[in-house]
Write a protein that binds this DNA or RNA. Sequence first.
DNA 1: GTTGAAAATAAACATGG
DNA 2: CCATGTTTATTTTCAAC
Lengths: 157, 157
Amino acid sequence: MEPLDEFDLKILGILQRDNLTSQRDIAERVSLSAAAVHRRIQRLHSLGVIARDVAVVAPEKVGRLITLVVEVVVESERLEALSELKRVFAAAPEVQQCYYVTGEPDFILIVTTRDMAEYEALTQRLFFGQSNVKRFRTCVVMDRVKATLDVPLQPAG
Amino acid sequence: MEPLDEFDLKILGILQRDNLTSQRDIAERVSLSAAAVHRRIQRLHSLGVIARDVAVVAPEKVGRLITLVVEVVVESERLEALSELKRVFAAAPEVQQCYYVTGEPDFILIVTTRDMAEYEALTQRLFFGQSNVKRFRTCVVMDRVKATLDVPLQPAG
DNA sequence: GTTGAAAATAAACATGG
DNA sequence: CCATGTTTATTTTCAAC
């Protein structure tokens, strides 16, 4: 894959902030024709640089008032046992994010629920119900200071 | 704010997955006219239910190979001291997410960098350089099993 | 919910680096 | 030959009814 040039990075920066910006507007801001911008966006899609285009829903506006960070320690690190856990975690809609990490915990999850009762029910399914979960620790989020998937876009060093 | 009905939730579900879906397509899938869908989307925007519309960039495709989860313990929980830290964390482009939480750590951060050298430089700025950071613990992400901001959309209970 | 105008996206073509 | 810009066609958005 040929590297991205300054134009690509500028376009990405704009789309990452607001992907409903018209190609004409983008064109003006990066000093290209709208057609060139269009082609570059298509290429960024086909290369997988743009993975998805999504509307970000405000959780609290749809009744998901609680965010939690959960650290999970597993029983076995056998590959199949881990894969199974990953599958279960990823399949749960309440789990926004799931990271398999080095260090003290094995997994770190970001979870949203309506309330604590729903979270307790979730722990039954995801943790107590999984034989490979040795223990878990929950942190309740008091302030979502920043919650994006934005990526810093500097010219490739 | 009047509650969202089933149509709104269906529309949100579609846009949350792919916000470039045409209103005509959405209309067909939810059994409404395109205009009705259009008006509902406008309303969802104005209500702030749809907070942003963004392109999700694949970090590894733009050279951000490392993801880290950092737990931070602060020195002082004074309001101004906390606000200052939040400001610093939120302002850093490498910090995708920042949560202020109850429990052992005070903050949990999701961070992306090009490499470990860049992360070390970042720790200088964000942690060692902040007098209110008592200590921090880093977990290196080996597998980004799931990384979305998707919200479960069930009819309000 | 239907219709029509305005705007955006997407394709076709021609050209300069 | 690849990437750009111009033009044309198609699709989508958006407002009026």
